[in-house]
Write a protein that binds this DNA or RNA. Structure first.
Lengths: 199, 199
DNA sequence: ACGCCATTGCACATCGATGTGCAAAATGAA
DNA sequence: TTCATTTTGCACATCGATGTGCAATGGCGT
Protein backbone atom coordinates (compact mmCIF):
# COMPACT_ATOMS: atom_id res chain seq x y z
CA UNK A 1 0.00 0.00 0.00
CA UNK A 2 1.56 3.16 -1.24
CA UNK A 3 -1.12 5.38 0.14
CA UNK A 4 -2.44 6.16 -3.31
CA UNK A 5 -4.74 3.18 -3.19
CA UNK A 6 -5.82 4.19 0.28
CA UNK A 7 -6.76 7.66 -0.85
CA UNK A 8 -8.68 6.25 -3.79
CA UNK A 9 -10.48 3.87 -1.52
CA UNK A 10 -11.57 6.74 0.64
CA UNK A 11 -12.66 8.79 -2.34
CA UNK A 12 -14.65 5.81 -3.52
CA UNK A 13 -16.42 5.63 -0.18
CA UNK A 14 -17.24 9.32 -0.32
CA UNK A 15 -18.71 9.03 -3.79
CA UNK A 16 -20.55 5.85 -2.86
CA UNK A 17 -22.06 7.62 0.13
CA UNK A 18 -23.35 10.45 -2.03
CA UNK A 19 -24.58 8.11 -4.71
CA UNK A 20 -26.37 5.77 -2.32
CA UNK A 21 -28.05 8.75 -0.71
CA UNK A 22 -29.36 9.77 -4.10
CA UNK A 23 -30.46 6.23 -4.88
CA UNK A 24 -30.27 3.45 -2.28
CA UNK A 25 -30.19 0.95 -5.15
CA UNK A 26 -27.32 2.53 -7.03
CA UNK A 27 -25.40 -0.15 -8.88
CA UNK A 28 -21.68 -0.71 -8.71
CA UNK A 29 -21.48 0.73 -12.20
CA UNK A 30 -23.27 3.92 -11.21
CA UNK A 31 -20.98 4.34 -8.24
CA UNK A 32 -17.86 3.61 -10.28
CA UNK A 33 -18.84 6.05 -13.01
CA UNK A 34 -19.65 8.73 -10.46
CA UNK A 35 -16.14 8.25 -9.09
CA UNK A 36 -14.67 8.53 -12.58
CA UNK A 37 -13.55 4.97 -12.53
CA UNK A 38 -14.38 1.67 -14.18
CA UNK A 39 -16.57 -0.85 -12.42
CA UNK A 40 -13.79 -3.38 -12.28
CA UNK A 41 -11.67 -0.99 -10.23
CA UNK A 42 -14.20 -0.83 -7.43
CA UNK A 43 -13.89 -4.57 -7.01
CA UNK A 44 -10.20 -3.99 -6.53
CA UNK A 45 -11.01 -2.13 -3.34
CA UNK A 46 -14.15 -3.91 -2.16
CA UNK A 47 -14.73 -7.58 -2.90
CA UNK A 48 -18.48 -7.13 -3.17
CA UNK A 49 -21.25 -4.62 -3.06
CA UNK A 50 -22.17 -5.76 0.42
CA UNK A 51 -18.60 -5.24 1.54
CA UNK A 52 -18.69 -1.68 0.27
CA UNK A 53 -21.97 -0.94 1.98
CA UNK A 54 -20.77 -2.65 5.10
CA UNK A 55 -17.69 -0.46 5.19
CA UNK A 56 -19.85 2.61 4.75
CA UNK A 57 -22.29 1.67 7.48
CA UNK A 58 -19.52 0.70 9.88
CA UNK A 59 -17.96 4.07 9.35
CA UNK A 60 -21.27 5.85 9.73
CA UNK A 61 -22.41 3.98 12.82
CA UNK A 62 -19.09 4.63 14.48
CA UNK A 63 -19.22 8.33 13.68
CA UNK A 64 -22.79 8.70 14.90
CA UNK A 65 -22.19 6.84 18.12
CA UNK A 66 -19.06 8.88 18.80
CA UNK A 67 -20.79 12.19 18.12
CA UNK A 68 -23.75 11.21 20.21
CA UNK A 69 -21.91 10.04 23.27
CA UNK A 70 -19.39 12.88 23.15
CA UNK A 71 -22.21 15.40 23.08
CA UNK A 72 -23.87 13.89 26.12
CA UNK A 73 -20.84 13.78 28.35
CA UNK A 74 -21.43 15.64 31.62
CA UNK A 75 -24.74 17.18 30.69
CA UNK A 76 -27.60 16.77 33.12
CA UNK A 77 -30.45 18.74 31.54
CA UNK A 78 -32.25 16.53 28.98
CA UNK A 79 -33.13 19.49 26.80
CA UNK A 80 -29.56 20.71 26.64
CA UNK A 81 -28.37 17.16 26.05
CA UNK A 82 -30.80 16.76 23.16
CA UNK A 83 -29.72 20.06 21.66
CA UNK A 84 -26.04 19.11 21.89
CA UNK A 85 -26.71 15.72 20.43
CA UNK A 86 -28.54 17.16 17.45
CA UNK A 87 -25.84 19.71 16.71
CA UNK A 88 -23.20 17.01 16.93
CA UNK A 89 -25.05 14.59 14.71
CA UNK A 90 -25.79 17.37 12.26
CA UNK A 91 -22.08 17.68 11.57
CA UNK A 92 -22.08 14.18 10.19
CA UNK A 93 -25.60 14.35 8.82
CA UNK A 94 -24.80 12.58 5.57
CA UNK A 95 -23.53 9.46 7.17
CA UNK A 96 -26.39 9.36 9.63
CA UNK A 97 -28.78 9.82 6.75
CA UNK A 98 -27.28 6.88 4.92
CA UNK A 99 -27.87 4.65 7.90
CA UNK A 100 -31.48 5.66 8.28
CA UNK A 101 -32.05 5.48 4.56
CA UNK A 102 -30.63 1.98 4.26
CA UNK A 103 -32.26 0.80 7.46
CA UNK A 104 -35.65 1.77 6.06
CA UNK A 105 -35.47 -0.75 3.27
CA UNK A 106 -36.09 -4.28 4.39
CA UNK A 107 -33.56 -6.32 2.49
CA UNK A 108 -30.05 -5.00 2.55
CA UNK A 109 -27.08 -5.87 4.60
CA UNK A 110 -28.21 -7.27 7.90
CA UNK A 111 -27.19 -5.44 11.03
CA UNK A 112 -27.90 -1.84 10.09
CA UNK A 113 -30.80 -1.84 12.49
CA UNK A 114 -28.62 -3.55 15.03
CA UNK A 115 -25.91 -0.94 14.59
CA UNK A 116 -28.41 1.88 14.92
CA UNK A 117 -30.03 0.35 17.95
CA UNK A 118 -27.64 1.69 20.60
CA UNK A 119 -28.18 5.20 19.32
CA UNK A 120 -31.92 4.69 19.21
CA UNK A 121 -31.92 3.38 22.74
CA UNK A 122 -29.78 6.18 24.09
CA UNK A 123 -32.08 8.64 22.41
CA UNK A 124 -35.17 6.97 23.83
CA UNK A 125 -33.70 7.01 27.32
CA UNK A 126 -32.89 10.66 27.01
CA UNK A 127 -36.41 11.45 25.90
CA UNK A 128 -37.92 9.34 28.67
CA UNK A 129 -35.80 11.20 31.17
CA UNK A 130 -37.03 14.51 29.85
CA UNK A 131 -40.65 13.37 29.87
CA UNK A 132 -40.32 12.19 33.47
CA UNK A 133 -38.87 15.51 34.53
CA UNK A 134 -41.52 17.42 32.64
CA UNK A 135 -38.91 19.11 30.49
CA UNK A 136 -40.49 17.49 27.46
CA UNK A 137 -44.21 17.37 26.85
CA UNK A 138 -45.82 14.92 24.50
CA UNK A 139 -48.75 12.52 24.29
CA UNK A 140 -46.31 10.04 22.75
CA UNK A 141 -44.35 7.39 24.61
CA UNK A 142 -40.60 7.99 24.54
CA UNK A 143 -40.00 5.26 22.01
CA UNK A 144 -42.42 6.76 19.50
CA UNK A 145 -40.96 10.18 20.16
CA UNK A 146 -37.58 8.76 19.22
CA UNK A 147 -38.98 7.81 15.83
CA UNK A 148 -40.24 11.34 15.39
CA UNK A 149 -36.93 12.77 16.46
CA UNK A 150 -35.09 10.65 13.92
CA UNK A 151 -37.45 11.57 11.13
CA UNK A 152 -37.33 15.27 11.94
CA UNK A 153 -33.59 15.22 11.41
CA UNK A 154 -34.07 13.17 8.28
CA UNK A 155 -36.60 15.61 6.91
CA UNK A 156 -34.36 18.59 7.51
CA UNK A 157 -31.40 16.90 5.86
CA UNK A 158 -33.60 16.30 2.85
CA UNK A 159 -34.78 19.90 2.94
CA UNK A 160 -31.18 21.09 2.83
CA UNK A 161 -30.45 18.67 0.03
CA UNK A 162 -33.41 19.94 -1.98
CA UNK A 163 -32.50 23.55 -1.41
CA UNK A 164 -35.51 24.33 0.75
CA UNK A 165 -33.27 25.22 3.68
CA UNK A 166 -30.00 27.18 3.54
CA UNK A 167 -27.23 25.11 5.14
CA UNK A 168 -25.86 28.04 7.15
CA UNK A 169 -28.06 27.98 10.19
CA UNK A 170 -29.57 24.57 9.49
CA UNK A 171 -27.86 22.96 12.47
CA UNK A 172 -29.34 25.18 15.15
CA UNK A 173 -32.66 25.27 13.30
CA UNK A 174 -32.68 21.51 13.47
CA UNK A 175 -32.01 21.64 17.20
CA UNK A 176 -34.84 24.11 17.77
CA UNK A 177 -37.24 22.07 15.68
CA UNK A 178 -36.41 18.79 17.37
CA UNK A 179 -36.81 20.40 20.79
CA UNK A 180 -40.16 21.95 19.96
CA UNK A 181 -41.30 18.63 18.51
CA UNK A 182 -40.53 17.18 21.93
CA UNK A 183 -42.78 19.81 23.47
CA UNK A 184 -40.20 22.33 24.64
CA UNK A 185 -41.63 25.86 24.33
CA UNK A 186 -40.38 27.57 21.18
CA UNK A 187 -38.69 30.50 22.92
CA UNK A 188 -36.88 28.30 25.39
CA UNK A 189 -35.81 25.99 22.57
CA UNK A 190 -34.40 28.91 20.64
CA UNK A 191 -32.46 30.18 23.65
CA UNK A 192 -31.11 26.72 24.37
CA UNK A 193 -29.95 26.11 20.84
CA UNK A 194 -28.18 29.44 20.71
CA UNK A 195 -26.48 28.89 24.04
CA UNK A 196 -25.28 25.46 23.08
CA UNK A 197 -24.09 26.55 19.66
CA UNK A 198 -22.04 29.45 21.05
CA UNK A 199 -20.11 27.68 23.72
CA UNK B 1 -66.51 -8.48 -15.81
CA UNK B 2 -68.21 -10.73 -13.35
CA UNK B 3 -67.17 -8.68 -10.38
CA UNK B 4 -65.07 -11.55 -9.10
CA UNK B 5 -62.13 -10.37 -11.11
CA UNK B 6 -62.74 -6.86 -9.89
CA UNK B 7 -62.65 -7.97 -6.28
CA UNK B 8 -59.45 -9.89 -6.90
CA UNK B 9 -57.91 -6.90 -8.55
CA UNK B 10 -58.69 -4.81 -5.52
CA UNK B 11 -57.34 -7.44 -3.16
CA UNK B 12 -54.19 -7.53 -5.23
CA UNK B 13 -53.79 -3.79 -4.85
CA UNK B 14 -54.26 -4.03 -1.10
CA UNK B 15 -51.64 -6.73 -0.80
CA UNK B 16 -49.30 -4.90 -3.15
CA UNK B 17 -49.64 -1.77 -1.03
CA UNK B 18 -48.70 -3.64 2.12
CA UNK B 19 -45.87 -5.47 0.42
CA UNK B 20 -44.40 -2.38 -1.18
CA UNK B 21 -44.50 -0.61 2.14
CA UNK B 22 -42.49 -3.44 3.64
CA UNK B 23 -40.08 -3.40 0.73
CA UNK B 24 -40.25 -0.76 -2.00
CA UNK B 25 -38.43 -3.19 -4.30
CA UNK B 26 -40.79 -6.10 -3.77
CA UNK B 27 -40.90 -8.20 -6.94
CA UNK B 28 -44.02 -9.26 -8.76
CA UNK B 29 -43.42 -12.74 -7.43
CA UNK B 30 -43.29 -11.54 -3.82
CA UNK B 31 -46.50 -9.60 -4.29
CA UNK B 32 -48.24 -12.49 -6.02
CA UNK B 33 -47.22 -14.98 -3.35
CA UNK B 34 -48.33 -12.61 -0.60
CA UNK B 35 -51.70 -12.50 -2.31
CA UNK B 36 -51.81 -16.29 -2.51
CA UNK B 37 -51.63 -16.21 -6.26
CA UNK B 38 -49.20 -17.10 -9.00
CA UNK B 39 -47.09 -14.44 -10.63
CA UNK B 40 -48.70 -14.97 -13.99
CA UNK B 41 -52.08 -14.06 -12.52
CA UNK B 42 -50.94 -10.61 -11.54
CA UNK B 43 -50.10 -9.90 -15.15
CA UNK B 44 -53.69 -10.79 -15.92
CA UNK B 45 -54.74 -7.71 -13.97
CA UNK B 46 -51.83 -5.36 -14.54
CA UNK B 47 -49.84 -5.46 -17.77
CA UNK B 48 -46.62 -4.49 -16.01
CA UNK B 49 -45.08 -3.69 -12.68
CA UNK B 50 -45.16 -0.01 -13.52
CA UNK B 51 -48.85 -0.25 -14.31
CA UNK B 52 -49.51 -1.79 -10.92
CA UNK B 53 -47.51 0.86 -9.11
CA UNK B 54 -49.10 3.54 -11.20
CA UNK B 55 -52.57 2.34 -10.25
CA UNK B 56 -51.54 2.33 -6.59
CA UNK B 57 -50.07 5.82 -6.69
CA UNK B 58 -53.01 7.21 -8.61
CA UNK B 59 -55.33 5.82 -5.99
CA UNK B 60 -53.16 7.11 -3.17
CA UNK B 61 -52.66 10.59 -4.58
CA UNK B 62 -56.37 10.93 -5.17
CA UNK B 63 -57.20 9.81 -1.64
CA UNK B 64 -54.66 12.13 -0.06
CA UNK B 65 -55.71 15.13 -2.08
CA UNK B 66 -59.37 14.49 -1.28
CA UNK B 67 -58.73 14.05 2.44
CA UNK B 68 -56.58 17.12 2.53
CA UNK B 69 -58.89 19.47 0.74
CA UNK B 70 -61.99 18.18 2.50
CA UNK B 71 -60.36 18.80 5.88
CA UNK B 72 -59.50 22.38 4.97
CA UNK B 73 -62.90 23.42 3.75
CA UNK B 74 -64.23 26.45 5.64
CA UNK B 75 -61.55 26.53 8.30
CA UNK B 76 -59.79 29.82 8.89
CA UNK B 77 -57.42 29.11 11.79
CA UNK B 78 -54.18 27.59 10.41
CA UNK B 79 -53.65 25.51 13.55
CA UNK B 80 -57.09 23.99 13.38
CA UNK B 81 -56.71 23.44 9.66
CA UNK B 82 -53.43 21.65 10.22
CA UNK B 83 -54.96 19.48 12.93
CA UNK B 84 -57.89 18.55 10.71
CA UNK B 85 -55.62 17.81 7.80
CA UNK B 86 -53.45 15.50 9.86
CA UNK B 87 -56.39 13.59 11.28
CA UNK B 88 -57.86 13.20 7.81
CA UNK B 89 -54.62 12.05 6.26
CA UNK B 90 -54.02 9.71 9.15
CA UNK B 91 -57.10 7.75 8.13
CA UNK B 92 -55.42 6.88 4.87
CA UNK B 93 -51.92 6.81 6.31
CA UNK B 94 -50.85 3.69 4.45
CA UNK B 95 -51.49 5.09 1.04
CA UNK B 96 -49.84 8.39 1.91
CA UNK B 97 -46.87 6.48 3.22
CA UNK B 98 -46.56 4.57 -0.01
CA UNK B 99 -46.37 7.80 -1.96
CA UNK B 100 -43.68 9.27 0.25
CA UNK B 101 -41.80 6.02 0.34
CA UNK B 102 -41.76 5.65 -3.42
CA UNK B 103 -41.07 9.32 -3.99
CA UNK B 104 -37.93 9.05 -1.86
CA UNK B 105 -36.26 6.67 -4.26
CA UNK B 106 -34.94 8.36 -7.33
CA UNK B 107 -35.87 6.07 -10.19
CA UNK B 108 -39.37 4.68 -10.15
CA UNK B 109 -42.46 5.59 -11.99
CA UNK B 110 -42.32 9.16 -13.11
CA UNK B 111 -44.76 11.59 -11.67
CA UNK B 112 -44.96 10.59 -8.03
CA UNK B 113 -43.28 13.81 -7.05
CA UNK B 114 -45.53 15.62 -9.46
CA UNK B 115 -48.61 14.01 -7.96
CA UNK B 116 -47.48 14.85 -4.43
CA UNK B 117 -46.61 18.41 -5.31
CA UNK B 118 -50.11 19.92 -4.96
CA UNK B 119 -50.37 18.50 -1.46
CA UNK B 120 -46.91 19.74 -0.59
CA UNK B 121 -47.71 23.17 -1.87
CA UNK B 122 -51.02 23.37 -0.04
CA UNK B 123 -49.26 22.30 3.12
CA UNK B 124 -46.52 24.87 2.64
CA UNK B 125 -49.05 27.62 2.09
CA UNK B 126 -50.91 26.65 5.22
CA UNK B 127 -47.71 26.71 7.24
CA UNK B 128 -46.69 30.05 5.76
CA UNK B 129 -50.07 31.44 6.69
CA UNK B 130 -49.64 30.27 10.26
CA UNK B 131 -46.13 31.65 10.49
CA UNK B 132 -47.32 35.04 9.20
CA UNK B 133 -50.10 35.16 11.76
CA UNK B 134 -47.78 34.07 14.54
CA UNK B 135 -49.85 30.98 15.21
CA UNK B 136 -46.82 28.89 14.31
CA UNK B 137 -43.32 29.59 15.57
CA UNK B 138 -40.25 28.24 13.91
CA UNK B 139 -36.81 29.32 12.73
CA UNK B 140 -37.51 27.34 9.56
CA UNK B 141 -38.98 28.70 6.33
CA UNK B 142 -42.41 27.28 5.57
CA UNK B 143 -41.08 25.03 2.84
CA UNK B 144 -38.59 23.35 5.16
CA UNK B 145 -41.26 23.06 7.81
CA UNK B 146 -43.37 21.19 5.29
CA UNK B 147 -40.60 18.62 4.97
CA UNK B 148 -40.56 18.24 8.74
CA UNK B 149 -44.31 17.95 8.84
CA UNK B 150 -44.27 15.18 6.26
CA UNK B 151 -41.51 13.29 8.03
CA UNK B 152 -43.21 13.57 11.41
CA UNK B 153 -46.21 11.79 10.02
CA UNK B 154 -43.97 9.29 8.34
CA UNK B 155 -42.10 8.60 11.57
CA UNK B 156 -45.31 8.03 13.51
CA UNK B 157 -46.67 5.68 10.88
CA UNK B 158 -43.48 3.71 11.19
CA UNK B 159 -43.75 3.77 14.97
CA UNK B 160 -47.23 2.30 14.76
CA UNK B 161 -46.02 -0.27 12.28
CA UNK B 162 -43.17 -1.29 14.56
CA UNK B 163 -45.43 -1.49 17.60
CA UNK B 164 -43.85 1.45 19.38
CA UNK B 165 -47.15 3.31 19.35
CA UNK B 166 -50.60 1.86 19.97
CA UNK B 167 -52.86 2.64 17.00
CA UNK B 168 -55.83 3.71 19.13
CA UNK B 169 -54.94 7.28 19.87
CA UNK B 170 -52.22 7.55 17.27
CA UNK B 171 -54.20 9.94 15.11
CA UNK B 172 -54.66 12.68 17.66
CA UNK B 173 -51.16 12.08 18.99
CA UNK B 174 -49.91 12.70 15.48
CA UNK B 175 -51.88 15.91 15.31
CA UNK B 176 -50.48 17.13 18.62
CA UNK B 177 -46.94 16.25 17.61
CA UNK B 178 -47.15 17.93 14.23
CA UNK B 179 -48.60 21.05 15.81
CA UNK B 180 -45.92 21.26 18.49
CA UNK B 181 -43.26 20.67 15.83
CA UNK B 182 -44.66 23.77 14.14
CA UNK B 183 -44.19 25.66 17.39
CA UNK B 184 -47.70 25.59 18.79
CA UNK B 185 -47.56 25.38 22.60
CA UNK B 186 -48.10 21.82 23.80
CA UNK B 187 -51.21 22.51 25.88
CA UNK B 188 -52.90 24.45 23.13
CA UNK B 189 -52.01 21.73 20.63
CA UNK B 190 -53.55 19.10 22.89
CA UNK B 191 -56.76 21.07 23.30
CA UNK B 192 -57.01 21.70 19.58
CA UNK B 193 -56.52 18.08 18.66
CA UNK B 194 -59.15 16.97 21.11
CA UNK B 195 -61.65 19.54 19.93
CA UNK B 196 -61.16 18.64 16.30
CA UNK B 197 -61.31 14.90 16.95
CA UNK B 198 -64.59 15.12 18.86
CA UNK B 199 -66.62 17.07 16.41
C1' DA C 1 -73.91 -30.86 -17.88
C1' DC C 2 -72.38 -26.93 -20.27
C1' DG C 3 -69.73 -22.99 -21.13
C1' DC C 4 -67.41 -18.84 -19.63
C1' DC C 5 -63.96 -16.84 -17.29
C1' DA C 6 -60.17 -16.55 -14.28
C1' DT C 7 -56.41 -18.88 -12.78
C1' DT C 8 -52.61 -21.90 -13.23
C1' DG C 9 -48.23 -23.99 -14.65
C1' DC C 10 -45.09 -24.34 -17.40
C1' DA C 11 -41.62 -22.62 -21.24
C1' DC C 12 -39.22 -19.00 -23.23
C1' DA C 13 -36.64 -14.71 -24.45
C1' DT C 14 -34.60 -10.69 -22.50
C1' DC C 15 -32.33 -7.51 -19.42
C1' DG C 16 -29.53 -5.70 -16.02
C1' DA C 17 -26.49 -6.46 -12.20
C1' DT C 18 -23.01 -9.14 -9.78
C1' DG C 19 -18.56 -11.13 -9.42
C1' DT C 20 -14.22 -13.19 -11.62
C1' DG C 21 -10.06 -13.83 -14.70
C1' DC C 22 -6.40 -12.10 -17.22
C1' DA C 23 -3.50 -9.51 -20.16
C1' DA C 24 -2.53 -4.88 -21.51
C1' DA C 25 -1.80 -0.11 -20.33
C1' DA C 26 -0.90 3.75 -17.22
C1' DT C 27 0.88 5.81 -13.16
C1' DG C 28 4.14 7.29 -9.91
C1' DA C 29 8.26 6.49 -6.86
C1' DA C 30 13.13 5.21 -6.81
C1' DT D 1 14.61 4.58 -17.02
C1' DT D 2 12.96 0.90 -14.29
C1' DC D 3 9.88 -1.42 -11.67
C1' DA D 4 5.99 -2.38 -8.74
C1' DT D 5 1.46 -0.97 -8.01
C1' DT D 6 -2.84 0.30 -9.80
C1' DT D 7 -6.08 0.82 -13.20
C1' DT D 8 -8.30 -0.56 -17.36
C1' DG D 9 -10.84 -3.20 -20.84
C1' DC D 10 -12.56 -6.77 -22.20
C1' DA D 11 -14.75 -11.77 -21.82
C1' DC D 12 -17.34 -14.78 -19.20
C1' DA D 13 -20.57 -17.27 -16.07
C1' DT D 14 -24.41 -16.60 -13.10
C1' DC D 15 -28.57 -14.84 -11.00
C1' DG D 16 -32.88 -12.85 -10.42
C1' DA D 17 -36.61 -10.22 -12.33
C1' DT D 18 -39.60 -8.91 -16.13
C1' DG D 19 -42.94 -9.84 -19.58
C1' DT D 20 -45.21 -13.14 -23.00
C1' DG D 21 -47.43 -17.40 -25.00
C1' DC D 22 -50.30 -21.23 -24.63
C1' DA D 23 -52.50 -25.28 -23.18
C1' DA D 24 -54.59 -27.26 -19.14
C1' DT D 25 -57.42 -26.70 -15.15
C1' DG D 26 -60.47 -24.83 -12.01
C1' DG D 27 -64.83 -22.66 -10.28
C1' DC D 28 -69.39 -20.72 -10.70
C1' DG D 29 -73.70 -19.54 -12.61
C1' DT D 30 -77.49 -21.15 -15.51
Amino acid sequence: MTGRADANRRRLMDVALAELLRDPDASMDQIARAAGVVRRTVYGHFPSRDALISALTDDAAEAVAAAHSAALRDVEDPAEALARSILAVWEIADRYRLLVSLAQRSVTVEGIMRRLEPVRRACTELLQHGLDQGVFTSPLPAEALAYVHEQVLFGLMQAVNDGALPPRKAGSAAAVTALTAAGVPADRAARLAEAVAVR
